[in-house]
Design a protein around this nucleic acid. Structure first.
Lengths: 234, 234
DNA sequence: TCAATGCGGATTGTCGACAATGGCGGAAGC
DNA sequence: GCTTCCGCCATTGTCGACAATCCGCATTGA
C-alpha cells in the first residue's frame, strides 16, 4: 500500500544512491521525520559522523539540506537542533497547503489522464474497505490521506508545484503529525470530502475541484485549531 | 527606492555575515540571478574557489544551497552548471505564484496594518509619477512591480508563505527576467490592476483581493505565453 | 550573596590533500 | 576512413587536521 510514498521516501535510501551525502541525508531525514531523533535535541556533527560511519563532510552537506527544508534549525558556531514546531507554524503551513493543493486540484481536473482518475477511485475503494474492517483506523486513515493528496498533486503535472508540496512541505507535515500525534479524528467526513473531490476531477470541473480541496484543507486546519484550544485553553 | 528588496538581496552580502559560506552564497546567487555568470555555463568548484579566494568547503556549501533553490543543476561526479530555464518552467512558476500570491493577498487584506496599507498607496503614487516622467519605463516598472508584490506578500504575516515566495521563487523569477529580457510590456494595465488590488485590501475585502491578484498574475502568465508563441511559432 | 570576568572544553568553520569517478582524445583494429 | 577501446586528465567526493567561536563553570571582587 501507498507504494508511491514509500518509493519517494526511500528513493535515495538504497545503496545505489550515488554519494555518501545522499544516503546520510535520506537516513537523517527519515530519523527526524519519524521522531527517532527527538524534536529539539541537538544534532552534533561529530557525533552523527561517528554514528553513521562517515566523515563530517558528507554529514554537513546532509544537515544543510535538512536546514533548507526547515527540518532542523542551525545557529552559527553553536550547533544544529531538530526543529521543534509550534502550532503557529503548523497553521501557517495549512494556509499554504490550502492555496497550493487547491491549485493542484484545479490543474488535476484539467490534466489528469483517465487511468489516473481510475486510480483515484481505486484508492477510495481501498480506503472505505479498510475503514470497514478496522475499528482503530487512525493510522491507516493518516497514510491513506497522505497518499490521496499525493496523487492529486502528481496529477497537476506541474513539476514546480509537485516539488514545493511533496519535496518540501510534506516532510514537515509528516513530522508535525508524529510530533503532535495528530490523529485524524474525522475520518468519515474526510473520506466523503475526498469522494466529492474525485467526482469533480472526473467531471473535469476544475473550478469545483479547487473549491472542494480548499474547503477540505481549511476544515482540517480548523480541526487542528480546535484541538490546540482544547489543550491550551486561554 | 525599493529598499526592502535591496536589503533582502544584500542581507548576507555585507561583511558582517557570519561565515564565509554565507558570503560566497550571496555573491554567487547575485552573479547568477543577474546573469553575470551565463546560464548553462559550468560552475567549477576549484575555479570559483580560487576566484573568490576561499577553500572548496564553503564554496561547496554555497553551491548546494543554490541547488536547493533550483538556481543551478548538479550532476554527480560531473559538475554543476547554471540552470538554463525553459518557458515551461516559467509558466509552471506562474501557476504557483497565482495560487500563493492569491492567498497572500487574501491574508494581507485581513491582517495588514493601516500604515502598511498607507505604504502601498505611497508606492503606487511613486509608480505613477515615475511612469509620467520617463518614456522608457520598462526597467523601473519591473522593479516597482517586484516591490509591490513583495510588500503584499509581507503583508500576509505568514512566515512560511513569505519564505516560499521570497526566499525561493522570486530569485528564479528574477533570473528568468534577466535571461529572457521579459519587458513588462503592459505597464499601464498592470498599474491599474495594482490599484484595484490595493483598494480591495484597504476595504478588507479578502475574497476580492485574492481574486484580483490571481487574475493579475494569470494575465502576466498569458502575456508570457503569447510572447513565447510569437518567438517560436509552430 | 551576587554579579562580572576570565579560563577550559567542546563544537563548528575552514582548509589542503587524497581517492574515486567521468569525459575526452589518441591509437589500434577492422 | 570509421569505429572501438584504452589510458590520461580534470573534476568532484571524501577525509582528517587545524583554527575560530561559543557555552559553562569557577574564581574573584564588591
Amino acid at each position: 500500500m501507498q507504494r508511491s510514498m514509500q518509493q519517494s521516501t526511500q528513493q535515495l535510501a538504497d545503496d545505489s544512491a550515488r554519494t555518501l551525502a545522499d544516503r546520510v541525508f535520506a537516513r537523517l531525514q527519515d530519523d527526524i521525520v519519524r521522531g527517532v531523533i527527538a524534536p529539539g535535541s541537538k544534532v552534533s556533527e561529530t557525533d552523527l559522523a561517528g554514528r553513521y560511519g562517515v566523515s563530517r563532510g558528507p554529514l554537513r552537506e546532509a544537515i544543510r539540506r535538512l536546514e533548507s527544508r526547515k527540518l532542523v534549525e542551525r545557529e552559527v558556531h553553536v550547533g544544529t537542533r531538530v526543529a521543534s514546531l509550534s502550532f503557529t507554524d503548523l497553521i501557517e503551513i495549512y494556509y499554504v497547503r490550502e492555496a497550493l493543493e487547491g491549485q493542484a486540484a484545479r490543474l488535476a481536473a484539467e490534466r489528469m489522464g483517465d487511468q489516473e482518475v481510475a486510480g483515484l477511485y481505486q484508492l477510495l475503494a481501498q480506503h472505505e474497505q479498510q475503514q470497514d474492517l478496522r475499528e482503530d483506523t487512525a493510522y491507516f486513515q493518516r497514510e491513506f490521506d497522505l497518499d490521496f493528496h499525493y496523487r492529486i498533486i502528481q496529477g497537476s503535472h506541474n513539476q514546480t508545484l509537485i516539488r514545493m508540496l511533496i519535496g518540501e512541505l510534506y516532510h514537515l507535515v509528516r513530522m508535525y503529525r508524529y510530533q503532535f500525534s495528530t490523529t485524524a479524528n474525522r475520518p468519515q467526513k474526510a473520506l466523503h470530502e475526498h469522494r466529492r473531490i474525485v467526482e469533480a476531477i472526473e467531471s473535469r470541473d476544475a473550478e469545483m475541484a479547487e473549491l472542494l480541496m480548499r474547503r477540505h484543507i481549511g476544515r482540517a486546519r480548523e480541526n487542528i485549531e480546535q484541538q490546540a484550544q482544547q489543550r491550551n485553553p486561554q
